[in-house]
Amino acid sequence: MTKKYTRFAEFYPFYLSEHSNRTCRQLHFVGSSLVLSTIVLALVTGNAMWLLAAPVCGYGFAWIGHFMFEKNRPASFKQPLFSFMGDWVMYWQLLTGKISFQPA
């Protein structure tokens, strides 16, 4: 990524293009689901230690997807805020069926 994006609307199509591998998208989805699960566990049990697992799950699954399957560097290395936002927009769109796990 050489361009520095200033608007999320411009960044998101690039973000999706960096997630064109089905397994990478699946790993992002699993990681994000586990992040939500660790937050719920922390709230339900009152044990904040569960929150330590959230970034490990989120970034761990995503980075495995990028390095092993997508064969690129995560956009979070250059634009962390937009990348974080993109993770959750993509998660919601995958969950609701707006986009597919199998990119076109």
Rank of each mutant, 00 (worst) to 15 (best):
M1T: 13
K3C: 07
K3D: 09
Y5Q: 09
T6G: 08
R7P: 00
F11H: 02
F11E: 00
F11P: 01
F11I: 00
Y12V: 03
F14M: 07
L16F: 00
L16V: 03
L16E: 08
R25F: 10
L27W: 13
H28E: 11
H28F: 07
H28M: 11
H28I: 09
V30S: 04
S32A: 14
S33L: 12
V35A: 09
L36N: 05
I39D: 00
I39T: 00
L43P: 02
L43A: 15
T45A: 02
M49E: 08
L52K: 03
P55N: 06
V56N: 00
C57A: 15
C57I: 06
G60S: 02
F61G: 01
F61T: 04
G65K: 11
H66D: 08
H66I: 09
H66F: 10
M68C: 11
F69H: 05
K71E: 12
A75P: 09
S76D: 10
F77H: 11
K78H: 11
K78T: 09
Q79L: 00
Q79K: 02
Q79G: 04
L81A: 02
F82L: 04
D87K: 03
W88H: 12
W92T: 12
T96R: 11
T96W: 04
G97D: 13
K98Q: 15
I99D: 05
I99A: 08
S100E: 11
F101V: 13
Q102V: 15
Q102A: 15
A104P: 14
